[in-house]
Design a binder for these strands. Structure first.
Length: 422
RNA sequence: GGUGAGGUGGGUGAGUGGCUGAAACCAGUAGUUUGCUAAACUGCCGACCGGGAAACUGGUCCGCGGGUUCGAAUCCCGCCCUCACCGCCA
């Protein structure tokens, strides 16, 4: 969530930035400001009452020590009214704070300077396109290729669990494992520390990264122990830094991690979810950065370059989108999406999303650092997929298909031990 | 699952009703000195929300939530969590 101090200090700028999302947030911003003002004045009144009551209590203690019981009794009588007052102010304050929090939760992150205005995905800006569509002699969609070469059995997954839980087998399983290993090795070479986090998280972690309380329905929940299956490694990895105060010299913190990801995807259906396009369980390597606020946009660019490097080494035709305000995620200030070409489906598939959250996430997480003035300041967080497996697999299969079989990208051959799937 | 112990500041850990926002030690930090890859000494050093130009100052916080009391880290109740041992087990 946004910081109320920032909103107070830069009311107009915040409204302008938010307007890029194609919606007017003036009313919400103003009610946040109004609530914050009320919060402060109420607190001043409360504090005064408490201060008086504290000082009387201290006097009573001293009087007892001097054996002046009578005078102590007189003071005791006075405290009754103060208590009553304090209680009222306390209740009022709590109510205002809840209301303020509720308003703040409704306000999305303010888009960064470079983010184009716009409401729909059509208004996203294509900032880069790499290579060409492959020239193919055959164009089978990946689900047919999976069946033909016995790589992924979707029906079997339905039997064991349900739709969206595919079974990878043989060379399909090995290709999957190779990609994970290669992604992790690349990340390590780029200076990321590898993390193997839990894939079930508690409620506090879900709140920390913003999945809870709102997007509860998107996660698998285990009520017996009140745990949630992670929708992305971002959740456990970012929560490592919940309630932490870093030193300035700790930056940059670079973590990566492979985990399976679980998403209920309630409400999705149709052609978009065919094959590997959308799953309930999939694998992903995630990169997470914590940065000094001065450097977060520079870091966003370098993360984008890093992800693009992976796609280039895999030889995939891709493009980079700078998302417009309206398509930028709730918590993000600026997002690049990387989309690879799916030759048989003849459409772009999103395989990575790299975002700068500025201090939006850090605010909920209470992730801070001591700045040069010795003050605690919120850190900036960024993350990105590097990469999500299923659509990468889909596009490798489709783009590299030949009548003789599917050509494995060179970088993966040492990992999987074969160079063609046939 | 059973039994027991416990949750205090970045860490270890003292603290059973007012003098404790909290001893001591470690870590951190600023400086002094001696000098050589460090040591000694001294000062500072929790977080959050307010007021103030500033010096400074009010309030809250000792797992969380309630209660008793003029006053609670300290007493009472509920919850959560951790650890140890036993049982089970990859």
């Amino acid at each position: 969530m946004l910081q109320i101090q920032d909103i107070q200090a830069n009311r107009n700028a915040t409204v302008d930035r938010l307007a890029k999302r194609g919606k007017d947030f003036t009313t919400l911003i103003d009610s946040a400001i109004e609530l914050d003002n009320r919060r402060r004045s109420t607190q001043v009144e409360l504090d005064n009452v408490l201060a008086e009551s504290n000082s009387i209590s201290k006097q009573i203690g001293q009087l007892y020590a001097q054996c002046k019981q009578d005078e102590a009794e007189v003071l005791k009588a006075k405290t009754g009214l103060l208590k009553e007052n304090a209680k009222q102010f306390e209740e009022a304050l709590r109510a205002i704070e809840l209301e303020l929090q509720d308003v703040l939760y409704q306000i999305p992150n303010a888009p960064g300077e470079q983010v184009p205005e716009g409401k729909t995905p059509e208004e996203n800006k294509v900032v880069y396109t790499y290579s060409e569509k492959p020239a193919l002699t055959q164009k089978l969609p990946h689900w047919e290729l999976c069946e033909k070469y016995n790589l992924i059995d979707f029906e079997l997954g339905v039997k064991i669990t349900g739709a969206g839980f595919p079974v990878y087998r043989g060379k399909g399983a090995r290709l999957q494992r190779s990609l994970i290993n290669w992604f992790l090795d690349e990340a390590r070479d780029a200076g990321y520390e590898e993390i193997q986090p839990p894939i079930l998280v508690n409620e506090a972690s879900g709140i920390g990264t913003g999945q809870l309380p709102d997007k509860e329905g998107q996660m698998y929940h285990m009520p017996v122990d009140n745990l949630y299956a992670i929708p992305t490694a971002e959740v456990p990895i970012t929560n490592i830094y919940r309630d932490i105060i870093l030193k300035e010299s700790d930056f940059p913190i670079k973590n990566c991690g492979y985990t399976p990801c679980f998403r209920r995807e309630a409400g999705s259906y149709g052609k978009d979810v065919r094959g590997l396009n959308r799953l309930h369980q999939f694998d992903k390597v995630e990169i997470v950065h914590l940065e000094h606020p001065n450097k977060s946009y520079e870091t966003l660019e370098s993360m984008s370059q890093y992800v693009q490097g992976l796609l280039q080494k895999l030889g995939l035709h891709y493009r980079v989108l700078l998302l417009c305000g309206g398509d930028t995620g709730f918590a993000s200030a600026m997002t690049y999406d990387m989309e690879v070409w799916s030759a048989a489906q003849e459409r772009w598939l999103e395989v990575s999303s790299v975002s700068n959250f500025e201090s939006f996430q850090a605010n909920r997480l209470k992730l801070r650092f001591k700045n040069e003035n010795g003050k605690n300041e919120l850190a900036h967080t960024l993350n990105g997929s590097a990469l999500a497996l299923p659509r990468i697999v889909a596009s490798i299969l489709e783009n590299n298909q030949t009548p003789e079989g599917i050509i494995v990208p060179e970088v993966l051959r040492p990992y999987c031990g074969f160079d063609i799937i046939n």
